[in-house]
């Protein structure tokens, strides 16, 4: 079990040593049940750090922001940034390393074990507590969460309130780290692609109807894009009005910008957006589920990514985010590829 005091001690130590710029971690939110991101710069603030099943966020998105900020600084602080990562989040770090978006020496990885469980789904928990507030959410033994609500302690089986993606998780322990807290607890999901089973069983027409209904809801707020650590392109194909225009962008280049997609949220444009998003995440998405969590309209966008994850596994035996030295899916080539047109 992760000892929270160890985490705080380690955080304090690295900050006191002065080799770390700041720590991206979790702290208790003053309101609401879930933890929120914390940015700790002073050693004495390390006390604020927390780690419990309410730490749902994938903080690696902030590494993307950090890189952008650093690029703009005149005299950048070149010390690494420390980040608290769960198993899944660590895989996002691997992908960012694989894609050379960040350098290994720019990040200090503090891994934490999910204790063989995972993090909670806020909606499921709210439902379970029937409107009551949880003051504290803790790991308890292997398969349970211990919830403190109105001074009362309730033990809930993890399966009942775990986030969907945690039920299908194949890496509940960090795959890359500088320091890791807690032990690896084995728990293999029976079927890592269970969530897409139902949709896969539908006919083409039914699937179309399902996605049309879901995607018609989309208001194109792009929250799913903003929260995704892999959506870090400076220029996104869907931004027809805010093309990245650099100092040396010529008039001709500006004129040649293609409008692949209209801003207006209607079926056809929404489909284009979500399919582009899914395709661009094929072989890159580590299934942190943040896109779906962030969606204000409850569109199950994670399912699209999950399907592509399955394709990658079945067609190319590729699993995302385990080895920063391996080429990414889209850039890997095998001489013994069964498709001979490729050789």
């Amino acid at each position: 079990m992760v000892n929270l005091e160890d985490l705080k001690k380690e955080a304090k130590r690295i900050l006191e040593e002065g080799k770390i710029k700041y720590i991206i971690g979790y702290e208790r939110s003053p309101n609401g049940m879930m933890s929120m991101p914390a940015f700790i710069k002073n050693p004495e603030d390390a006390e604020r750090l927390t780690w419990d099943p309410s730490c749902v966020y994938n903080l690696t998105r902030f590494l993307v922001d950090e890189k952008r900020r650093k690029a703009k600084e005149k005299k950048p602080d070149t010390r690494p940034v420390a980040i608290v990562v769960k198993g899944c989040d660590s895989r996002a770090v691997v992908v960012l390393l694989q894609e050379k978006f960040i350098n290994r020496e720019d990040v200090y990885i503090l891994g934490v074990s999910c204790e063989g469980a995972g993090v909670v789904d806020e909606k499921k928990l709210t439902e379970k507590l029937k409107g009551k507030k949880a003051d504290k959410i803790e790991f308890s033994e292997k398969d349970h969460f211990l919830i403190t609500s109105d001074g009362e302690k309730i033990k809930i089986p993890a399966q009942e309130i775990l986030a969907e993606r945690c039920l299908e998780c194949r890496a509940n322990f960090p795959v890359i780290y500088d320091e890791v807290l807690g032990e690896k607890v084995e728990r293999r999901p029976e079927d890592p692609f269970k969530s897409i089973e139902r949709i896969e069983s539908l006919s083409k027409e039914e699937r179309w109807a399902f996605w049309k209904e879901q995607l018609d809801k989309c208001i194109r707020c792009y929250a799913c894009r903003s929260v995704c650590p892999m959506c870090y392109c400076d220029e996104c194909v869907v931004d027809t009005i805010s093309f990245a225009v650099a100092a040396d962008t010529t008039a001709e280049e500006k004129a040649q910008k293609i409008k692949w997609i209209e801003r207006s949220p209607d079926s056809s444009e929404n489909f284009v957006y979500h399919l582009v998003r899914a395709i661009h995440l094929a072989g890159r998405c580590i299934d942190c589920g943040e896109c779906e969590r962030a969606c204000p309209l409850d569109i199950p966008v994670r399912l699209l990514n999950k399907k592509l994850e399955k394709e990658a596994k079945e067609l190319f035996d590729y699993e995302v985010g385990f080895d920063p030295e391996k080429p990414s899916l889209a850039s890997s080539f095998k001489d013994d590829d069964p498709e001979d047109f490729i050789r």
Binding site: E99, F101, D234, E235, A244, P327, S331
Partner: peptide
């Protein structure tokens, strides 16, 4: 290469 858009991920180098 459009240097403004290149993030240096190196995927093209691999392929």
């Amino acid at each position: 290469v459009n240097l403004n858009l290149c993030t240096g991920c190196g995927m093209c180098v691999e392929v």
